[in-house]
Design a protein around this nucleic acid. Structure first.
Length: 873
RNA sequence: GGGCGCAUAGCUCAGUUGGUCAGAGCAGUGCCCUUACAAGGCAAAGGUCGGGGGUUCGAGUCCCUCUGCGCCCACCA
């Protein structure tokens, strides 16, 4: 079982990371066995980090949590499927590439094989982005992400993640594109994916549609403008308050609540809009809020999401003006007929909303149709989460996947799927339920961007060369992945592209979530030729992720799995909290309070940083705290030293086993800790497992080892007092040495998920193989190893024993003498149970405390009287 | 407007079916070169468990309510 110990004279944590990372890789310590069956496997749906983002201490935090669970399950004997991927496609990457290289994509340009990016970082402020072709741009994206991915890999390896690096994938890679397109086409075939021409939230800077899940509200300054609409019956004016007077030319109606007595008489009558003189009806709808503004609103196509609802439910015409470029068209729209209206419109033609608003207000002021000054307010405005200007609503043709946002049955089904998961912590399910319950439309997956998985379809062109969007041409399955901008649909030749009667490729790519929602399928090699992996790993055991992306990643993955497999993609969802800076603000790049992780790993050692991370309980936001890392480093150092100490005694004799009460009690206490840690890990509560193990470990070092070290040395007992600890001195020594080693082995394994480096280092001093391939300790194992079967003594009596030991130390501390100082006489006052406890370990206690005589007195409470020996000088 | 979470020593946090549950670590203080560890060890001190009600023989622990902080969601003219 054991080697000859190979213990350094001066154990050190320095440099162990590099050495062990290399050994793990060479030995395949974390290699997944592809022959394992599903019930032998523990499968993890690892989050693929967005490599265009910055390396963040948050990565260290949450990935460590998952890694501790992976290591635990591996030691429990499961084949751990622990893949890793990089999420590299998508708009985030495009923006990073634009910022770093100083280019922008212009899909109308031809490919330039000689192209080189003008910059590599440090783009001057006054630089105007250089237009490049789509293929050139995509090449640049691939280059930049490759560099980013190497930095991520370096960090994740240094962090000691026990992922199987041979399973590495990227979301722009061939397999991910193939799986993503195949899943989409199957959604399409089943009617779960569809296209629709409808008002869509649109980012005019990025020139792409965005999904509900990607929107966020921001508090923005605005102002109520009170405008006069003129009743056609000559009954005077009707006043509305609006924050967007520039949308006046898009007004299609006015609306008030059906129960509002102020406006009931006007329902069905017409008014003329100020400035533009367009006649619009006054209508009733329950969404109108009598409390807001003047209680009556103008409906524009489209100012906000409510306008879309009104437009749809009241069957109103569309008078949309703001286009893809975010500007008003240069021509007067047909519905503005009056000379004055045309003149007014020309004042804002070609302008962006902000400038248009200024002009419109000036004109309204001039005509007297605006009452009073604008009243400043602060109100929430919808933004793309990565955007810098408010979203506009533009009518466009887009692809959607059904997610229950328009279908109560599907919504209920997906809510029920949420119930099938076990959530850690449980209250996180509320966020899922909340989100699914509040969806107001299907999932918009098409993006008018470039670096992503192409929507894998083409459209027939009619005799005039216009696309027939109802005639969707799909690729053959074996052709996947395809790029419709260069590949041809089945049955067509390249020269038919773009010509009447021919075809045209869909120009869009899919949202990055449309691909990352398939991580179980991508990592599991779903539908891939010659692979039976998927059936061995799906459904997966756990999805670990941040709680902030329940509405996006978790939900999207659930939607895809529900459609494709009719089941949840995992059994458990484990949510990590965020890292807060010491002032309890969320760390983010924009706040400038981000801590980069690599230097921390170098300064404190990986184990120490992992210790800090693992102290953060599941789902709980945790403050960044370097003092915790110092404690973690102390723990790792202590493990080095105590291992060295225990192993110094040499191997116990063959057949030796713990027999002494204090040794057996220590092991019994450890057995309870092992069971506690096991239960905690089974519930994904790694933090609790660590806390219990750590508490035991320090008690073991500070009390137990101090108590038995003299006996373990084999020293002759001091003094001649008859102790209750019977048996030959040699047998007592063997008992201590055996117990120390049994405990050491268990503690190294219990700490291995948290401190993978130092535990494997100390394990290698006396054991074969890696600690990470060793078996997780259990109470049954400890009972067997202690040679007593299950008959371990109740460790409760260790408590009063510890108190007596502390009392002895206290007396010496208060007397300001060394802990080695001799004690002439110790009187233990207390109940007889305390006497019994002390007697069970009397010899150990006397040697540990350098105690001469021990006397006992019966009392209600435990007290010790300590008579120090006279100082010798 | 709806929902969720948090509020325990100066700091970071444990306290899982209500009954040694008032704890740990850090910081601060004091002591000790003790043969595994001085980038260490030992110890003393620190809190009316956010406020107020209630249930109970008994409540950080359950219920109600209030306050503060944070987060998620919402159709925000």
């Amino acid at each position: 079982m054991t080697n000859i110990p190979d213990i350094p004279d001066k154990p050190s944590l320095d440099g162990i990371e590099a050495r062990l990372i290399e050994r793990w890789e060479a030995d395949g310590t974390y290699r997944f066995d592809r022959a394992a069956s599903r019930d032998e496997v523990f499968a993890i749906d690892t989050p693929p980090p967005t490599v265009s983002g910055s390396l963040h201490i948050g990565h260290v935090f949450s990935y460590t949590h998952t890694d501790t669970v992976a290591r635990y399950q591996r030691m429990r004997g499961r084949q751990v499927f622990y893949p890793i991927g990089w999420d590299d496609n998508g708009l985030a990457t495009e923006r990073r590439v634009q910022n770093v290289t100083g280019v922008r994509c212009d899909p109308s340009l031809p490919f330039d094989p000689e192209f080189r990016a003008p910059y590599n970082g440090d783009v001057p402020k006054d630089h105007r982005a250089l237009p490049v072709s789509r293929p050139n741009f995509v090449d640049l994206c691939r280059e930049i992400t490759h560099i980013d991915e190497q930095a991520f890999e370096a960090l994740f390896r240094r962090l000691g993640l026990s992922v199987d690096w041979s399973l590495l994938y990227t979301t722009i890679g061939d397999r991910a594109r193939r799986v993503s397109q195949r899943a989409f086409l199957r959604n399409l075939a089943r009617g779960e994916a569809y296209q629709q021409d409808a008002p869509t939230l649109y980012d005019i800077d990025e020139r792409t549609a965005v999904a509900q899940a990607e929107m966020e509200d921001r508090e923005m300054p605005g102002a109520y403008h009170k405008l006069a609409f003129h009743r056609l019956d000559g009954g005077g004016d009707v006043f509305i308050a609006t924050t967007r007077p520039e949308l006046l030319p898009s007004c299609v109606a006015m609306v008030a609540h059906p129960d509002d007595p102020r406006y009931q008489p006007l329902f069905g009558t017409m008014v003329s809009t100020p400035l533009f003189g367009v006649d619009v009806p006054i209508l009733a709808h329950p969404l109108a809020d009598p409390e807001k503004g003047t209680g009556i609103a103008m409906i524009c196509t489209f100012g906000d999401v409510t306008d879309v609802v009104w437009w749809r439910e009241l069957n109103l015409p569309s008078r949309a003006l703001i286009g893809f470029d975010g500007r008003f068209p240069g021509e007067v729209p047909e519905w503005i007929a009056t000379d004055m209206g045309c003149e007014a419109y020309m004042q804002i033609a070609g302008l962006a909303p902000k400038q248009a608003q200024k002009r419109v207000v000036e004109m309204l002021t001039a005509t007297g149709e605006m009452v009073g000054d604008p009243e400043p307010i602060v109100h929430p405005v919808k933004f793309y989460e990565r955007g810098s200007r408010p979203l506009e609503i533009v009518a466009t043709r887009q692809w959607y996947i059904r997610n229950g946002g328009r279908d109560q049955q599907l919504r209920d089904d997906l809510l029920a799927r949420g119930d099938e998961l076990t959530w850690h912590p449980g209250y996180m399910q509320h966020r899922y339920d909340n989100w699914v319950g509040g969806l107001n439309g299907d999932w918009l997956i098409s993006r008018q961007r470039y670096f992503g998985v192409p929507v894998p379809v083409w459209y027939r062109l009619d005799a005039d060369g216009n696309p027939i969007y109802d005639e969707v041409l799909v690729p053959a399955d074996e052709a996947l992945p395809v790029d419709p901008s260069t590949d041809c649909p089945p049955g067509f030749a390249p020269d038919q592209r773009g010509v009447p009667g021919g075809f045209i490729g869909d120009p869009d790519v899919m949202d990055t979530w449309a691909t990352s929602s398939l991580t179980p399928q991508i990592a599991g090699e779903w539908t891939e030729a010659d692979s039976d992996l998927f059936d061995r790993v799906f459904p997966m055991d756990v999805r670990p992720q941040g709680h902030d992306i329940i509405r996006t990643w978790l939900f999207a993955t659930m939607v895809r799995s529900h459609h494709e497999h009719g089941m949840p993609p995992w059994r458990n969802a484990a949510l990590s909290g965020w890292i807060l800076d010491p002032d309890r603000k969320k760390m983010s790049k924009s706040k400038g309070n981000v801590v980069t992780p690599m230097h921390l790993l170098e300064q404190y050692g990986t184990d120490a940083v992992r210790y800090w991370a693992a102290s953060g309980r599941p789902g709980v936001d945790t403050a960044f705290d370097e003092s915790q890392m110092k404690i973690g480093r102390k723990l790792a150092t202590k493990l080095l030293n105590v291992t060295k100490f225990v192993l110094t005694f040499g191997e116990p004799d063959a057949g030796a086993s713990p027999t002494e009460a204090v040794d057996l009690a220590m092991l019994a206490r450890l057995a309870a800790v092992a069971d506690d840690a096991t239960a905690a890990f089974d519930g994904y509560d790694y933090a609790r497992a660590l806390e219990r193990t750590e508490a035991f470990f320090w008690w073991f070092c500070d009390d137990y080892v101090e108590l038995v070290k003299s006996r373990a040395y084999g020293d002759e007992p001091a003094g001649s007092q008859q102790d209750s600890q019977a048996g030959s001195r040699a047998a007592l020594t063997q008992s201590a040495r055996a117990a120390l080693r049994i405990a050491l082995s268990s503690m190294q394994r219990l700490l291995a998920p948290f401190l993978p480096f130092v535990t494997d280092e100390v394990w290698s001093w006396w054991q074969n193989g890696s600690v990470h391939a060793a078996t997780w300790p259990t109470s049954a194992e400890l009972a067997a190893a202690s040679g007593t079967g299950t008959d371990l003594v109740d460790p409760a009596w260790l408590e009063p024993l510890g108190e007596v030991l502390a009392a002895v130390r206290r007396a010496k501390t208060e007397a300001k003498v060394s802990q080695r100082a001799e004690i002439e006489r110790l009187v233990v006052q207390g109940p007889t149970e305390v006497h019994d406890a002390v007697r069970r370990a009397l010899a150990d206690l006397r040697e540990a405390g350098s105690i001469g005589a021990v006397e006992f007195e019966v009392a209600d409470d435990l007290r010790c009287v300590v008579d120090l020996a006279p100082v010798a000088d």
